[in-house]
Design a protein around this nucleic acid. Structure first.
Lengths: 211, 211
DNA sequence: GCTGATCTTGACCATACGGTCAGGATAATC
DNA sequence: GATTATCCTGACCGTATGGTCAAGATCAGC
């Protein structure tokens, strides 16, 4: 029995435990959904007794809420690339790359987010109505400017954004299906590159940003 | 209190009850996931006592399995249009229309399917490995032929299919998010048409099938 | 209207779950 | 090394859930 390593100072311990629990929770929630996940299983994955979870997070819902909020932050962060861009080919291309990378490195988070939204966003509805709405309006304006400047075809910005989200997140949310259709093997580096290239080519060409 | 109508003959009764239960189950599963759904709630939605559900479906899992299988049938059915087509613009355009229509009319089914796959397809893994794999291979061949005939750009057929699925199903799976970003109102007829048009335009143009 | 098969259901059961708590361990501060 | 605040955890509890069952209702066929 190896002793659990506790190399942290007093100050960090709370955060360290919370991070450990949140990682375990994200994994379990993504695999079983909120209803299917159990605090006992999360505790087992984290390697802690169940009661310890309730010390840091009073309820299952509080833990879940924190998981979803963390995911939302990553989600928004990918937009920074969008803003810094000069035109649609560069900006949207970089955004697609960033979101594909998130789907690859952080698929659990994407799944939790997807499940939450599919079930009517009971926990993060307020985020959708405020932060996400503002974010979307802002990007839509950028896209509209690109259209006015003649740098891409006149496309409804909303539907373009939905398409970007749908396509990139599909590689995380439906990763299991893709893997099965890939002979049971997860995508290789080359296949991930091909995916990114295909998505970028179709969308950027489809909106007339590559001519 | 209105009397429950029982206009059926003996022969139909079983099927009628099963259909009623399956409809309720699809709704509840789509809103709460497998783990979050309860047999009691499904029974309430169906307007039947819980014990009656267990007469027709021995376990919650058997009921769920039947729901998912029914959805899978609808999923595959949309492919008929694909086959009858002459070229990519016609075939893929009709396929997009068909899948968008399913997303609009049958969003619950899409959500159940998505959740099932996201959780690793514990119930329908065999379908993925057999029926879906065959289906995908078949369509990929059709797309490859179109490419050889010079009727569209050389795109990896798999990634194109993933994009079609992702984009069209997004309008069902993330319908709540779209609705919220639409000011809390569900998409109007005109907006649905705009969605279909945008998706078709971007994809068909993006693969070089519209020039 | 009797019979047998199918259907219906209220009451019940075992289990598993989220959450609580009291008491003990740990470690920083003086 | 005494004090104090924080952290840890085994044992426990009330509840809700999936599932069972036996007794009754319904109805086609005769």
């Amino acid at each position: 029995m190896p002793q659990p390593v506790r190399s942290s100072s007093k100050k960090d311990r709370r955060q360290e435990s919370e991070t450990l629990i949140l990682a375990a929770a994200e994994k379990v929630f993504s695999e079983a959904g909120f209803g299917g996940a159990t605090m006992q299983l999360i505790a087992d994955v984290a390697g802690l007794p169940k009661a310890n979870l309730h010390y840091y997070f009073p309820t299952k819902e509080a833990l879940y809420r924190q998981v979803v909020q963390n995911i939302f932050q990553i989600w928004l962060q990918a937009a920074d690339i969008f803003d810094a861009a000069d035109g649609p080919a560069e900006g949207l291309g970089a955004y697609i790359d960033a979101k594909m990378e998130i789907s690859r490195r952080h698929p659990e988070g994407s799944k939790v987010w997807a499940t939450e939204v599919m079930h009517g966003a009971p926990v993060i509805q307020d985020y959708l109505e405020t932060t996400l709405l503002d974010w979307t309006d802002g990007r839509a304006k950028v896209i509209e400017r690109w259209i006015e400047e003649g740098r891409m075809d006149p496309i409804d910005p909303r539907h373009l954004l939905y398409m970007l989200w749908a396509t990139t997140q599909h590689y995380a949310d439906f990763g299991h299906q893709i893997e099965t259709l890939n002979g049971g093997k997860s995508l290789s580096n080359a296949q991930w590159e091909a995916a990114k290239t295909s998505v970028k080519q179709i969308i950027l060409r489809g909106i007339g940003a590559l001519d």
